[in-house]
């Protein structure tokens, strides 16, 4: 079939996003979850209007494409994602652009802090095992799981200022 001429094609906007997660997420699972959430919020017709697709995703940052008229709906759909395969996540939009090139240059060239695994027993501010450190952020698996169960997460989040011994 002959391809559509550029003036007849749909116009898209590219939304750059950052993903915060407890366990790593695959691009395919993210695409499925975005579609599921959009469908849940706006229905089949809404999903077809948005025409949403994950263009790029490197594990922490990525680009989603949607119809130019439906960017607020996409932002609402991304904000509504709370879990992917029972793994708590948070999708934060960084910015919107008209081309992939501009979106990458403007929003995706910021270096992310590397996340590394540690294993250290802590007692302040909570007794447990510090398992991850990313910049100033430290994740702790607590002995008493009451608080994390209440918040529906796996880790207690602290910063280096809360426990300077871990630097």
């Amino acid at each position: 079939m002959k391809p559509l001429s550029p003036t007849l094609r749909d116009n898209y906007r590219y939304v750059a996003f950052r993903l915060s997660f407890e366990d790593p997420i695959r691009a395919r699972d993210l695409q499925t979850e975005i579609e599921r959430t959009t469908k849940s919020l706006f229905g089949d017709v809404g999903l077809s209007k948005l025409n949403v697709r994950v263009v790029a995703f490197d594990g922490t940052k990525g680009l989603v494409r949607c119809n130019i008229r439906h960017v607020p709906e996409l932002q609402a759909a991304l904000a509504s994602i709370g879990k992917i395969k029972s793994n708590r996540v948070c999708v934060t939009t960084i910015g919107t652009s008209g081309t992939i090139k501009a979106a990458i240059e403007k929003y995706l060239q910021i270096e992310e802090k590397t996340r590394r695994n540690i294993s250290s027993y802590v007692t302040v501010p909570v007794s447990g095992k510090a398992v991850r450190i990313c910049g100033e952020e430290i994740d702790i698996v607590p002995e008493d799981r009451k608080t994390v169960d209440r918040a529906d997460v796996q880790f207690i989040g602290i910063t280096i200022d809360d426990n300077e011994r871990l630097i």
Binding site: S20, E22, L41, P72, E73, Q75, A76, L78, A79, S80, G82, R88, V89, C90, T92, T93, R150, A151, D152, V153, G157
Partner: peptide, 19 residues
Amino acid sequence: AYSHLDLRAPRQLKALAGL
């Protein structure tokens, strides 16, 4: 929010409030 995973950016909260 009960954790940082429950926080959303102001522009996202505005998009949700629009609904």
